[in-house]
C-alpha cells in the first residue's frame, strides 16, 4: 500500500476530508474507525474538516465529503447542501445515505399519524402536543436518500460498510482510481 500512497505520486498537500452523520446511527463512522492502525497511514494523507471526529462546526472547502445517513428533517438538508457546496467529491456512505435505510421504513406511514400517535394519543408517551419550538428541525414528510437532493459522486454501500471496504475505497480514491469493491467487500447489509 505504501508504494501506492507514495509521496512522489501525491502533492504534499493533504486531502481535506469532512464527514457527517445525518439520519444515521453512527455505525458507518464506527466502521471507519475500525480501519484500526491503518488510520495512521491515512492521517498522513488526509486531514479532517467538519466531522464528529473534530470540533469544527461548519464545513469549509474540502476535497472529500463523506455522508452517513439519509434525509429525515430540514436540518439534514441544510447540512447536506453545505457539504455539497464545499466538497469536490461527495460520497454516500452506508445503506441509510444510499436508500434511506432503516429510518425510511417509516415511509409507508403518514407523518401526521406518526406525530399524532407519538405526541398526542399513544398511552405511555408524553402528551404535550407536537413540539413547535422553532429551534427544532421539522421532519420531512418522507425520509429520502441523499442522491435525491444533491448530486452524489460515489456510493459506498453496507450497513455499515466493512472497514476493509472503506479502506479500499479511500485508497483507490487517493490513488486516483475509480473505487471498486468486488466480491466480499460490496455488501448491502
Amino acid at each position: 500500500m505504501n508504494a501506492l500512497i507514495n509521496a512522489t505520486l501525491f502533492p504534499p498537500k493533504k486531502l481535506r476530508v469532512a464527514t457527517t452523520s445525518l439520519a444515521g446511527c453512527f455505525g458507518c463512522h464506527m466502521s471507519f474507525l475500525d480501519i484500526d492502525e491503518r488510520i495512521l497511514k491515512l492521517i498522513e494523507l488526509i486531514e479532517f474538516d467538519r466531522s464528529p471526529l473534530t470540533d469544527i462546526k461548519h464545513c469549509g472547502p474540502c476535497d472529500l465529503g463523506l455522508i452517513e445517513g439519509g434525509l429525515c428533517n430540514a436540518e439534514n438538508v441544510h447540512v447536506l447542501r453545505e457539504f455539497r457546496t464545499h466538497c469536490k467529491i461527495l460520497v454516500a456512505v452506508g445503506a441509510c445515505a444510499i436508500n434511506g435505510g432503516l429510518p425510511a421504513q417509516r415511509n409507508h406511514l403518514d407523518l401526521r399519524d406518526v406525530l399524532e400517535e407519538v405526541y398526542q394519543t399513544e398511552p405511555g408517551l408524553s402528551h404535550g402536543g407536537v413540539p413547535n419550538d422553532p429551534e427544532l428541525p421539522l421532519p420531512l414528510n418522507k425520509v429520502h436518500p441523499i442522491h435525491e437532493v444533491v448530486k452524489v459522486d460515489y456510493f459506498l454501500p453496507g450497513c455499515p460498510p466493512p472497514a476493509d471496504a472503506i479502506w479500499k475505497f479511500l485508497t483507490d480514491l487517493l490513488a486516483g482510481r475509480t473505487p471498486t469493491l468486488g466480491h466480499g467487500l460490496l455488501h448491502y447489509d
Binding site: C159, T180, Y188
Partner: peptide, 27 residues
C-alpha cells in the same frame, strides 16, 4: 422496498447477489 440489513434473505438472495455481480453501488 429492499432494506437488506433487515431482510432474512440477505446473503442468499439472487437479486442482491446479481447486483453485487454487476457492481450496483446505488439505486
Amino acid at each position: 422496498n429492499h432494506f437488506c440489513p433487515s431482510c432474512e434473505k440477505s446473503g442468499n438472495c439472487a437479486l442482491q447477489a446479481t447486483a453485487y455481480e454487476l457492481n450496483m453501488m446505488s439505486p
